[in-house]
C-alpha cells in the first residue's frame, strides 16, 4: 500500500489567493488535461496538479516538472467549466517553487533567466547574446547550432544589440521585491 497522504487544506487556499484562480471549484472533469498540448510530457497532468493543490501536497506540486512545462497557451482556461485558468495557477506555483527553494526544470529556467537578463541589459531581447548566455547556463552548447547558423545566414539574427534610451527606467521596473529577478 502506498503511503497515505496527509492532507493540508490550507495550501489550496494559499494558491487560490496568490493566483486569483478559483482552484477549489475544480470537480476534476479533466477537460484541461484532455486539451493540454504539453500534458503528454508532464509528470503530473494539469488536472492532477489542481487536485494535488486541493489536497495540500505541496512538495509533489512544487517539485513537479509540470509547472515548468506549462506554455501558458490558455487552452485549459478557455474551456474550463469552472472558470479555472490554469496558466495563472502555474505561474503562482512557479513563484512559490522558486521562493521555497525547489529545483526548477533546468533548461526552462535557464532560458527564462537569460531572456529576462537580456531585457534588463538592453530594454529589448537581443537574441544572439541571450542565446549564448542560455547555452552557458544550461550547459547545452551544441543543440540547435545548425539552425542558429542558418538563421544568422538568413539575416534573422542580428550580431549587435541595440540599447533603448529608457533602459534605466526598465531596470527600475525590475525592482519588484522578487528575489528572483533582482538576483
Amino acid at each position: 500500500m502506498a503511503v497515505a497522504y496527509e492532507l493540508d487544506p490550507t495550501f489550496g487556499r494559499v494558491v487560490q489567493g496568490r493566483s486569483g484562480v478559483p482552484i477549489l471549484r475544480c470537480y476534476f472533469c479533466q477537460k484541461c488535461t484532455a486539451g493540454c498540448p504539453v500534458a503528454y510530457a508532464m509528470d503530473y497532468k494539469p488536472a492532477q496538479i489542481v487536485r494535488l493543490v486541493q489536497l495540500g501536497q505541496k512538495d509533489a506540486v512544487l517539485s513537479s516538472t509540470a509547472i515548468w512545462l506549462c506554455v501558458g497557451c490558455e487552452t485549459c482556461g478557455t474551456r474550463c467549466p469552472n472558470q479555472i485558468r490554469l496558466a495563472p495557477m502555474f505561474d503562482a506555483l512557479r513563484y512559490m517553487a522558486l521562493e521555497g527553494g525547489y529545483k526548477p526544470e533546468p533548461s526552462v529556467y535557464a532560458l527564462h533567466r537569460s531572456f529576462l537578463d537580456s531585457i534588463r541589459l538592453w530594454g529589448r531581447v537581443h537574441e544572439l547574446s541571450m542565446l549564448m548566455q542560455y547555452k552557458l547556463r544550461s550547459r547545452d552548447l551544441f543543440s540547435d547550432l545548425m539552425m542558429g547558423i542558418g538563421l544568422i545566414l538568413k539575416g534573422k539574427i542580428s550580431f549587435l544589440p541595440e540599447r533603448i534610451r529608457g533602459v534605466s527606467q526598465v531596470r527600475k521596473l525590475y525592482e519588484t521585491g522578487s528575489s528572483e529577478v533582482e538576483r
Binding site: V71, G72, D91, A92, R94, Y95, L98, V108, L111, H112, R113, F115, L116, I119, G123, R124, V125, I164, R165, G166, V167, V170, L173, Y174, T176, G177, S178, E180, V181
Partner: peptide, 23 residues
C-alpha cells in the same frame, strides 16, 4: 523607444514584472 514585454519569461518567474514591462 518601446521595450520588450517580457513575454512568457516574465510571467513565468515574476508576476509583477510581467505587468510592469508592458505597462
Amino acid at each position: 523607444d518601446w521595450n520588450c514585454c517580457g513575454a512568457s519569461s516574465a510571467h513565468s518567474l515574476d508576476h509583477e514584472l510581467s505587468l510592469r514591462l508592458p505597462a
